[in-house]
Amino acid sequence: MKLCEFLRPASLSAARDNLRELGTKGMILAGGTALHFMQDHTPVTAVDITRLGLSYIRPDGNFYRIGATTPLSDIQRYRAPRWAMHEICRRISTHQIRNVSTIGGNICRVFPWADLPVVLLAMNARMVVYSDHENEYSADEYFATQPAKRFLDGNILTSVKVPALQAHHGFGSVKVSRTTAAFSMVTIAAVLELDGSIIQSARIAAGSAIPFPRRLPNVEAALVGKEAVSEVFKEASTKAARDVPWRSCEGQSPEYSQHLAEVSILDALERAATFAHGRAE
């Protein structure tokens, strides 16, 4: 992406005014790492929102609220009771990238291999978007299509509200990649709500090796009302093929992608069950 001008608005409303005025010639900059890889060389004006106080993590009722320009390394290092976001952030790219890349940048324009949308879908997070007032979108609504479309009229993602997991909730995520810093081959995230050993509800999401991150409703349906044991998890994971056609990527066949997904779902569910039963923080 070619930058022809660089603006540092002093407020959210000024940033929105800049973006509305610029239209397609404006590009919001939250961390900026992705801009270097965009193939469109049409000159654009960068609107830097990193100085607007949007870098924070704080408890907010039943949620943890994460500011849109919070670097991934801050999310990785944050600790709080039953906080789980650090696990996936540790697995995203390298230390140097995580120090610059932000949660907002990661989820405003979603690439097929992005890990955070998968986790946020499973966790039923809520995205807060500033227009002339704040609107909240559930993860299901927000990630139903490419979120970038939501920001064409100058709206700005300001924060992400991640539900604080309750004592009977469990979270597990798995990212498969060839090297630590490589893009994901398959990413799976699972949240289980247990009543004793019975699964009351399940949210399972997948990314990479499919066109766009999404939930796996057939896998979820195969879990609800069942006992949280390996046999059930294994049976549920075989439903992944019904939810989405797994595709080839980076030399792996569609069959291999599907197999990788099934194994990863099983692993994520085991981790979620362990978490729900009380893991070491």
Partner: peptide, 25 residues
């Protein structure tokens, strides 16, 4: 493209790739 790390510098004490930062940032 932010892979090899030979351009690493510190920004406010944190390691960053200087090839993936615009100077204006």
């Amino acid at each position: 493209q932010g892979t090899c790390g030979s351009c690493t510098v510190l920004m406010d004490g944190r390691a960053v790739y200087s090839c993936l930062l615009y100077a204006m940032q």
